[in-house]
Measured scan of single mutants.
Amino acid sequence: PREAYIVTIEKGKPGQTVTWYQLRADHPKPDSLISEHPTAQEAMDAKKRYED
Rank of each mutant, 00 (worst) to 15 (best):
Y21F: 11
H27L: 11
L33R: 03
A25I: 14
R2V: 12
V18K: 14
A43M: 01
A40I: 15
G12A: 05
D52Y: 13
T8W: 06
I6S: 00
E42A: 09
G15L: 07
Q16S: 13
P1T: 13
T17Q: 12
V18E: 14
E10H: 12
Q22Y: 03
K13N: 14
K11L: 08
Y21C: 01
Q16G: 10
Q16K: 10
P14H: 09
Y50M: 05
Y50T: 03
S32R: 14
Y21R: 00
P30S: 07
A43T: 02
K47A: 04
Y50K: 02
S32P: 02
E36W: 06
T39I: 03
E51Y: 08
M44G: 06
A4K: 01
G12C: 03
I9F: 07
D26F: 07
L23C: 02
V7Y: 06
Q16F: 15
P28G: 08
E3S: 15
T8L: 11
K29A: 11
P38I: 11
P30M: 10
D52N: 14
I6H: 00
P14D: 13
T39V: 03
I6D: 00
W20L: 08
Y50W: 15
Q22C: 03
E42P: 01
K48C: 05
A43P: 00
G15V: 03
T17P: 07
G15K: 06
Y50D: 02
M44W: 15
I34C: 03
Y21H: 04
M44Q: 12
A25D: 04
P14I: 11
I6A: 00
D31S: 13
K29F: 13
Q16A: 10
D31Y: 15
I9K: 05
R2W: 14
D45Y: 10
R24L: 08
R2K: 12
R49G: 06
P14A: 10
R49F: 10
V7A: 06
L33H: 03
Q22K: 00
D26W: 08
R49N: 11
L33I: 13
D45W: 12
Q22W: 02
G12Q: 06
P1F: 14
Y50I: 04
H27V: 14
E42G: 08
K29S: 13
Y5C: 03
R24E: 01
E42W: 02
T19H: 05
Y5F: 10
V7N: 04
T19G: 03
A4H: 04
Y5L: 03
T19W: 06
I9R: 04
Q16V: 11
H27C: 07
A46V: 02
K13P: 13
T19F: 08
W20R: 05
T19I: 15
G15N: 08
E36N: 04
K47H: 05
Y5P: 00
A40W: 15
D52Q: 15
P38F: 07
S32I: 09
D52L: 15
R49A: 15
K29C: 09
P14Q: 10
K11R: 13
Q22P: 01
E10Y: 11
R24D: 01
Y21Q: 00
K11P: 02
P38M: 13
L33F: 12
A40Q: 15
S35V: 01
K47N: 02
I9E: 03
A4L: 14
Q16C: 09
Y5H: 06
R49C: 06
M44A: 13
K48I: 13
Y5M: 04
K11M: 08
P30W: 08
I9G: 02
P28A: 07
A25C: 08
K47F: 05
T17N: 07
E42F: 03
Y21V: 01
I34G: 00
D45Q: 13
K48V: 11
W20N: 03
S35K: 01
A40G: 06
K11I: 10
A43S: 03
R2T: 10
K48R: 13
H37K: 01
V7G: 03
Q41T: 10
V18D: 09
T19R: 08
P14F: 11
E36H: 02
D45L: 14
K13Y: 13
Q41V: 10
E10R: 08
L23E: 00
L33S: 02
H37A: 01
P30E: 10
D52S: 15
P1Q: 15
G15M: 05
Q22E: 11
T19S: 06
D26T: 10
G12P: 03
P28S: 07
R24H: 07
R49I: 13
R49H: 12
L23W: 00
D52H: 13
D52G: 14
